[in-house]
Design a binder for these strands. Structure first.
Length: 304
DNA sequence: TATATTTGACCCTA
DNA sequence: TAGGGTCAAATATA
């Protein structure tokens, strides 16, 4: 794998070299995994390979993050204690729970989110990111012309997914919408890769996508769930023409922008490793011709 | 009928 | 204490 790096503040060459080694390992494991998946090689534990791949990527990111010296974005929201979440119940039945007198007394007992772990994105139109959102509020914000819209993940109650987003029209550019994402999607839909592709933009410089390397999310232990997820995702695909997933910022999340060419994409998307922990100016450019299909497939099918 | 949206109220945090 | 995030009843929609 040829990797050209433009990490402006990544002066730790040794660390970067290690990162590259880890990425190469990841590719190697992914290749083996591809063989396993295709049924060609018996006796090889696919789950172990997945874990190795994830470990390689995680190590790489740790190294890169270490080089950049930032450590933010470790936030996970607290679930409001007042509204006991029972995943076995439907959302509405849970909302009914929340409508109980006990809950009513605790109305508003939420914790205001801290300001970290956010991802902001501006787009010509409200982003259809592939997740199912439910609007729960609208608020006029001081000194703004347009109200701010509040959305939560549809699976907040049935799966305890705490991801939320806010959408607000940009004042200066009425055609622009600023979408701010908070929290990770923990719902099963999130097994789609966390990729934001703004295909509406012709200019590569305006397009970006977001990949999450968060290996804390369900992987091999949820094979059954994964299958279900695939079904869910298919359903979601039906519901969403532009199935872009919502990113959320964690220590393992990376913003990818336009310099990486995925063969499966008609447009070119460069890798601009803008992570929660990397400075926005930090760029890792990968030689597109060297990107292995298996890695790509891995990204698309397993990450986040 | 089920699900989603609207909107005023509630109340936590800066 | 004002502003902003969330709740939840009312309403709309499929």
């Amino acid at each position: 794998m040829v990797i050209t790096e433009n990490i402006s503040n990544g002066n730790n060459l040794l660390g970067r070299r290690k990162a590259i080694e880890e990425l190469e390992k990841g590719r190697e494991f992914a290749n083996k995994l591809r063989v396993v998946i295709s049924g060609g090689e018996g006796g090889v534990d696919g789950e172990q390979l997945v874990e190795k791949v994830l470990m390689s990527f995680t190590n790489s990111l740790l190294i890169l993050n270490k080089n950049t010296g930032s450590n933010n974005c470790d936030e996970v929201y607290d679930v409001p204690s007042s509204c006991g979440i029972n995943p076995t119940k439907s959302e509405d039945s849970l909302e009914s729970n929340c409508k109980s007198s006990v809950h009513k007394e605790r109305r508003g007992c939420y914790k205001r989110r801290r300001t970290s772990q956010v991802l902001e994105k501006e787009s010509e139109a409200p982003i259809d990111d592939g997740h199912q959102w439910r609007k729960y509020g609208q608020k006029v914000i001081l000194n703004t012309k347009h109200p701010r819209n509040y959305y939560r993940c549809t699976h907040k109650y049935d799966q305890g997914c705490l991801a939320t987003k806010q959408v607000q029209q940009v004042e200066d550019e009425p055609t622009l919408y600023k979408t701010t994402y908070y929290g990770n999607h923990t719902c099963r839909n999130n097994l789609n890769p966390t990729i934001i592709l703004d295909e509406s933009n012709d200019s590569p410089s305006q397009s970006s996508m977001f990949l999450s390397f968060d290996n804390s999310l369900p992987t091999t232990n949820n094979n059954n769930n994964n299958n279900n997820n695939n079904n869910n995702n298919n359903n979601n695909n039906n519901n969403n023409n532009n199935n872009n997933n919502v990113p959320s910022c964690s220590s393992n999340d990376y913003m990818i922008s336009s310099e990486l060419t995925f063969d499966n994409y008609s447009t070119h998307h460069h890798v601009n490793a803008l992570s929660s922990t990397l400075d926005s100016d930090d760029v890792i450019s990968y030689d597109p011709s060297q990107l292995d299909d298996a890695i790509e497939h891995f990204f698309v099918t397993n990450i986040y």
